[in-house]
Design a protein around this nucleic acid. Structure first.
Length: 420
RNA sequence: GUGGAUGUAGCUCAACCGGUUAGAGCGCCAGACUGUGGAUCUGGAGGCUGUGGGUUCAAAUCCCAUCAUCCACCCCA
């Protein structure tokens, strides 16, 4: 029995990887344009980091982590998200002594033990950006602008930006009480999940999809109703900044974040049409996280983009990338001497940076040409006994079938000229 | 973790009510065409019907379990 891959961890095959590489190029180029530097953190950390950072009570930590002990019995976990690790690295490498703010981005795999479905996998990839050391609403706006610019460059259409503020811990205390006492008399009308939520996680009531619950909660108190003076001023300033940047948005008071570390600004980019999962990017402010993780009090704001979801959306919208990683030239040779000689030609082409390959199966001329055709190459260099004796090679254009005999010394210049 | 659908050749799918040797198209390899790809024709390889049990004279077909995939819930990117 051949060994199969574990559940929910797709192979990304040649052809698809072209799309990935394109997206990764966009990410890097864009991040650098906005002044962000790449950070690479390990894909596993001490479990405690996520327990403290993401929050012990969150579903992600409580039931979705890949956790294991190492040989000395220390508990490690595959990272379920990116921010906690970046925060850890920020503290551990004394980045609070760097010129502030520190602007970082990352791209890489994350792991969550979830049931897979459309747009959700056990190993998935995120691109994220984080800014440390500034509470300026302008920074929140910049991060949002970067996020939206990313989708725009890729050519995605029909997305909407939803923003809100979940407030600081002080704002939230009153909110929870108020929400619970608002809904308590009406619990009978809620769906069974929501009846659970009332005690377990009341904020979740706000974003239930059930029409009945939505109706009951329409007038319910939201985080926005309980913002303290400074949170409220910050949110107002953010809206001003977005206005100045001509970024349109919806205020969604019912937006709830699943990670404990969020404070104040929170936002989501929504795109229908990729299955039940419609959030393709989300983020917010986390002004207490650095301190929670043992660093000096340092504000932060950032986002994460789901790469698979973004690729899914691109596919859904019929947006293709031209992946050009295939050889453009195929070297064909018949006869023992010619084959030996052709190997040197192939080597020279490759040294010149021309993507070139050859038949590796000892096929006849005809079959080699067939291979070349199937591989989709543009040019075939043919060397047989005749060409060998004349010091030439036949150069054949596969699209038109035109073929010319050229001196070997001309081969590389001509291929270069044609390629351009 | 919960619920639903589905697993037959590399891919897309057939195979009646359980009944002989599980078929087709595409793809792959080769030949027709011993120095020329795509078109056409011909041939070939390729299957323990996801896996393990059970029922039956007989299982791709019915039952159970398990694994995987897809979809949805929970949750999230």
């Amino acid at each position: 029995m051949p060994i199969k891959k574990p559940r929910g961890v797709p192979d990304i095959l040649p052809g698809e990887t072209d799309r990935w590489q394109h997206l990764e190029r966009v990410v890097r180029e864009l991040a650098h344009v906005y002044g962000y530097q790449e950070i690479r953190t390990p894909i596993f950390e001490f479990t405690e980091l996520f327990q403290r950072g993401v929050g012990e009570g969150t579903d992600i930590v409580a039931k979705e982590m890949y956790t294991f002990n190492d040989r000395r019995g220390r508990s490690l976990s595959l990272r379920p998200e990116g921010t906690a690790a970046v925060v850890r690295a920020f503290i551990e490498n004394n980045m609070y002594t760097w010129p502030q703010p520190v602007k970082l981005y990352y791209i890489g795999p994350m792991f969550r033990y979830d049931r897979p479905q459309a747009g959700r996998y056990r190993q998935f990839h995120q691109f994220g950006a984080e800014v440390f050391g500034s509470t300026e609403p302008g920074v929140d706006a910049e991060v949002i602008e970067l996020l939206l610019r990313f989708y725009k460059i890729l050519g995605l259409k029909g997305l909407s930006l939803e923003i809100s503020s979940v407030g600081c811990p002080e704002c939230r205390k009153e909110l929870t009480d108020s929400l619970v006492s608002y809904i308590r008399p009406q619990t009978a009308g809620l769906c069974k999940d929501c009846r659970d939520r009332v005690d377990r996680n009341p904020l979740r009531l706000l974003d239930c999809k059930e029409p009945g619950c939505k109706e009951l909660l329409r007038e319910a108190p939201t985080p926005l109703d309980f913002l303290c003076l400074s949170c409220s001023a910050h949110f107002a300033a953010l809206r001003q900044e977005l206005l100045a940047l001509k970024i349109s948005y919806n205020i969604n008071p019912h937006m709830v974040r699943g990670l404990d570390y969020y404070t104040g600004t929170s936002f989501e980019v929504i795109l229908p049409g990729i299955g039940a999962q419609s959030a393709i990017g989300a983020g917010g402010r986390y002004d207490n996280l650095v301190k929670t993780c043992g660093g000096p009090p340092t504000p932060g704001v950032g986002f994460a983009v789901g790469i698979e979801r973004t690729l899914l959306a691109l596919e859904e919208q019929g947006i293709e990338f031209s992946g050009d990683t295939q050889p453009g030239v195929f070297v064909v040779a018949v006869g023992e001497d010619a084959v030996r000689h052709a190997l040197r030609i192939l080597q020279a082409l490759r040294e010149a940076g021309i993507r070139a390959d050859r038949d590796h199966a000892n096929r006849g001329l005809k079959a080699q040409l067939k291979q070349a055709h199937r591989r989709g190459v543009k040019w075939v260099v043919i060397v047989g006994e005749e060409e060998l004796s004349r010091g030439t090679a036949a150069l054949r254009a596969m699209d038109t079938g035109e073929q010319v005999e050229v001196n070997e010394s001309e081969l590389i210049p001509r291929l270069r000229a044609w390629r351009a």
